Amino acid sequence: MKQAIEFSHTLQQFLHVGSRRKSHISYMIVVHEGAALFRLGHQEFLVPKGQGFWIPFNCLHALTVLPGSRFDTVSFSSRLTTPLCREAGFFAVSPLLHALLDELQRHQSNPTTLTQPQSVEKNLLSVIADQVTTLRVSTEVICPGLNPTQAAQLAQLIKGEKITAPAMLEKLPTYLGCTVNEFEACLTMREALRLSRSGRQPEQIAQALQTSHQALNALAQPILGHHFE
């Protein structure tokens, strides 16, 4: 990081599959469209539209972002002396934080409309830093807004198991930002990428996923933006 606190706004056109790693910074994401998945240990958490998630310094995690998702990231350098939350988890996006992120996004989109743009961005980020000092996070649920039965079925879906309850098939797209079938296809391609990174060949990957190389290619083009090699 060049600055102690940095902001970025991202439109993730295709599937992003991050590796499992320890964070060298602390950071928050706030999802505006689509959804993201954070893996902490053996548990995976779904961050839907309107929700925020916090990752502290040195936290072992993996991030997956679904195609078409739009989100903000605010990163905090480990050099900061300001006390930051040391736990990972969901946090409530306050009206003030939402407004600050909107202003930062407008500022980056139209920097020439503001005087002393670097100073303006620095001031906005300083206010966010103040907000973060009182951040309260939770990992009691895998997705805010779902009851225990619904959360259990979402966990089943994330593990690659089928769900058939009509009520869930109707409700989950609101949280996933896509249909259940599209989500399942993204998880298939995520696993294919992970196997590829471990050194498996395409035909071996197709066999492990009980599909064909041709089927993986058909999924890869809209999800990854390229053929699966």
Results as ranks from 00 to 15, higher is better:
R106G: 03
H42Y: 11
I142P: 02
H61Q: 12
F38E: 00
H24R: 14
T82E: 09
F38K: 03
L80V: 10
T64A: 12
L37Q: 09
V93Y: 02
K122M: 13
Y27H: 15
L60K: 14
R21K: 15
S26V: 04
V65Q: 00
P67C: 09
V74C: 06
E33D: 12
S138K: 07
V137P: 02
S23E: 10
L125P: 01
G34K: 00
S75N: 06
D72L: 07
L37F: 09
T112P: 01
H61Y: 12
P67A: 04
C143P: 08
L40I: 12
L124R: 14
S94E: 13
A62K: 01
H107I: 00
F71S: 00
P48G: 06
F90Y: 15
C143S: 03
P95S: 10
S78E: 15
L100D: 04
Q118S: 03
V30I: 14
I25M: 04
L135V: 10
H98E: 11
T81W: 08
C85W: 07
L84S: 10
G41L: 05
T64E: 12
F53G: 06
E121F: 01
V132L: 00
A99M: 14
T115W: 11
I55D: 02
T73E: 12
S23R: 08
R86S: 08
L46A: 00
L40C: 13
V47Q: 03
L135P: 08
